[in-house]
Design a protein around this nucleic acid. Sequence first.
DNA 1: GCGTGGCGTCACCGCGTGGTGAAGCACCGG
DNA 2: CCGGTGCTTCACCACGCGGTGACGCCACGC
Lengths: 103, 103
Amino acid sequence: MASTFAVLADPSRREILDLLRERERPVGYLVDRLTLTQPTVSKHLRVLREAGLVEVRTDAQRRWYRLSPGPLAEIDAWLAPYRRLWKQSLDALERRLDEIEGD
Amino acid sequence: MASTFAVLADPSRREILDLLRERERPVGYLVDRLTLTQPTVSKHLRVLREAGLVEVRTDAQRRWYRLSPGPLAEIDAWLAPYRRLWKQSLDALERRLDEIEGD
DNA sequence: GCGTGGCGTCACCGCGTGGTGAAGCACCGG
DNA sequence: CCGGTGCTTCACCACGCGGTGACGCCACGC
């Protein structure tokens, strides 16, 4: 999990994940959408692969990449203990709104 | 939000957030817990401050840092569209377990 | 006033990383 | 067999960032 945050730190990689959310895509599709050269995209895909965020399927000379959301679930779990903190901030906000509304 | 992932990418900074989860703390306390020198901790705190993840309260020559969970909520929101993906993976797992149990 | 404690800032170093062009590789169509 | 396509890998460069020691600053106690 440790490095998942580091992997997600790059905006291009997050954009790749967004592009894969709908369905699996070949590399060329990603290169067309992003403003990066093809080797750069391949490099990012390698990082995403080694982080377990993405999986490949080889179809002849074409590689189809699909999302593998496991590590994202771990991030969600890491967030858990903090969740009550911003929930109570929102609650405080809500109470203040209720007060104003009560006037 | 964009840079929040980059800020969280560093393990020391995540550790600082963990240490601040219970209650606000002065810098010296953080330096004692982490294996970092004081300037390094100050540098991380600056980054966390500018990312809005942390706030300071000055008490004489002592600075008390407290957690400010707003950006974490934004990460949680970013995660939202992916949540159904690992949910359905877990569902598939569950169905398989049910099948086995059904035997 | 003077030392001391608590932190922030500065200058600096070393390393990791994102980006690129060029080369290499596998597969297909002719 | 040969050109082309789709993608990975390979140096290589430039920049940013984490870490550190030295310094500066402010508040307090004596």
